[in-house]
Structure formats: structure tokens, C-alpha cells
């Protein structure tokens, strides 16, 4: 099929970016979206141009690297998948496709479609862990009985791959869904309760320092999350945060 692509091109963080038009032909509906981008880049290289920079790693929907905003939605029109799991059969011959980077002040553009999501790493470093002794006498986690309801909820929260689609889709560029998942996956389990107070305060403080927007409960983050992280975790984060501040 033949496609008309409108892709955001930006040399570096300081340069001014713009949408550049590309035409691409003979795209198989069986190709993944990233394979289509590979074909486009081969064509650009053949024409001595600068290929479009985009993030990708596992191409299995696990790593959360591919961060494209496709036709107005993060990871494209399908739900519960990342860009690498999006296939060209989702588009029709002659379609125009807008491809943009995830946009947020806290996710500065490195080049073209590649954004710096290290703000998420810094949030994790501020509290997204449990302090345990790993010097050889670590207790087996399975020795602590945990109610299935809580184990399931903690696991659901832990499926967050930190791709940033929540930030990209939110009209306020809020990272609340990401932080709520990371806080909840620990606070729902007995091992994580010990540091729950400091964790939630530190992670929320770091989130604010990074310049993400405020959550206004539109729910866009939950709808666009490739792992379907529920808004319930944001309500839980709010509870945890208020409780932690009352305790302090």
C-alpha cells in the first residue's frame, strides 16, 4: 500500500523542529509499524538523507522503548499495545499518518522521535525500590503469605513498562499513572509497606520536580496505557500520599 507520512523532524534538543512529508510505497499490511519505519529509513539513506531517529528495542511489547505518537494517540490507534505491536493492516492504502514524538516538558526531544525519558528513572531512584539485605541471607519472598487479591493488584501495577504513553496522552502531561503504579506495586505487599511513607512522598516530590503537569482525572492515561494500568491506582496514590503526610 501507498502511504503519506507526516513525521516530526528535529535535529537536536535546541533545534527548531517541523513536520516533514514523506511518501512511501509497497508497504505490506503484514509489516509492523516499526518495519515500515525501517523501510522508510532505508529509502531515506539511499537518497543520502538523514534517517528518522526513533526508539526501539525488544519489538515484543515488553521494553516500552518505542515512543511514537501516531495519528493523535500514543502507540497508535490500537489499545493495549505498544508501537512495535502495531501492524500496517490497521491502515488503508492512501492513508495519511502523523508520527510525532511523545510531547512533554519533562520528556525533552533528543532527536526526531526520540525523547529523553530519564525523568522516569529519577522518579524510580527516589523511592521505587525496597531496601533489603542481598548479601547472601535474603529471605525467600514466598515465605510471607500474601492475600491473592493484593498479590494480583501488586502484579497488575508491576506490569507498567514505563513507556510514557500516560504522559503523552494526558492533556496535562501528568505522570500520575506511572507513579501510582510504581508506588502501588510495593505498597500493596508487606515487604514494601516498611518504606511506604517515605517512598510515596519522595516519588511524588521527584515527579513534581521533573515538571510533569497535574492530574485532572480525564482518564486518558488509563485508556492509552499499553498495559491497561487502572485509574484506581491513582486514587490509591492519592490516599497513600495524604496518609503519609498526616503521619510525618
Amino acid at each position: 500500500m501507498k502511504l503519506f507520512l507526516k513525521i516530526w523532524r528535529q535535529k537536536n534538543n535546541q533545534a527548531k523542529g517541523k513536520i516533514v512529508d514523506y511518501e512511501i510505497d509497497e508497504i505490506s499490511p503484514d509489516m509492523s509499524f516499526l518495519e515500515m519505519m525501517d523501510v522508510l529509513n532505508e529509502k531515506i539513506i539511499e537518497e543520502d538523507g538523514d534517517p528518522v531517529a526513533f526508539d526501539h528495542d525488544c519489538r515484543e511489547g515488553i521494553c516500552g522503548s518505542c515512543s511514537m505518537f501516531i495519528n493523535g494517540e500514543p502507540h497508535g490507534p490500537d489499545k493495549l499495545i505498544t508501537t512495535c505491536q502495531l501492524h500496517m493492516r490497521r491502515f488503508k492504502d492512501g492513508d495519511t499518518i502523523y508520527i510525532e514524538p511523545f510531547r512533554a516538558k519533562a520528556f525533552p526531544i533528543i532527536k526526531d522521535l526520540v525523547v529523553d525519558r530519564s525523568a522516569f528513572d529519577r522518579i524510580q531512584q527516589s523511592g521505587g525500590f525496597i531496601s533489603i539485605n542481598t548479601s547472601g541471607n535474603t529471605l525467600d519472598a514466598n515465605t510471607i503469605p500474601i492475600e491473592k487479591e493484593y498479590a494480583d493488584k501488586a502484579f497488575d501495577a508491576a506490569t507498567c513498562i514505563g513507556c510514557g504513553a500516560c504522559v503523552a496522552s494526558c492533556k496535562n502531561s501528568s505522570a500520575m499513572l506511572f507513579v501510582s503504579a510504581k508506588v502501588s506495586q510495593f505498597s500493596l505487599l508487606p515487604q514494601g509497606r516498611v518504606e511506604a511513607t517515605d517512598r510515596v512522598i519522595n516519588m511524588v516530590n521527584q515527579m513534581d520536580e521533573e515538571g510533569f503537569g497535574n492530574c485532572t482525572n480525564t482518564g486518558a492515561c488509563h485508556v492509552e496505557c499499553p498495559k491497561g494500568i487502572s485509574l484506581d491506582y491513582i486514587a490509591k496514590l492519592n490516599r497513600e500520599y495524604v496518609k503519609a503526610n498526616l503521619k510525618k
Partner: peptide
């Protein structure tokens, strides 16, 4: 919130994931 996204998307389909009122 406006400051948190200094450059807007060329195409943004808010209606696909949230209510107009919100």
C-alpha cells in the same frame, strides 16, 4: 498544565480516550 507541554501535537485525538467535559 499548559507549561508542562510547551509544544503541542500536530494531531491530538483527545476524544478517543477522554470525555470532552473532562
Amino acid at each position: 498544565n499548559r507549561k508542562a507541554r510547551p509544544v503541542s501535537y500536530a494531531m491530538y485525538k483527545g476524544s478517543k480516550n477522554s470525555m470532552f467535559v473532562s
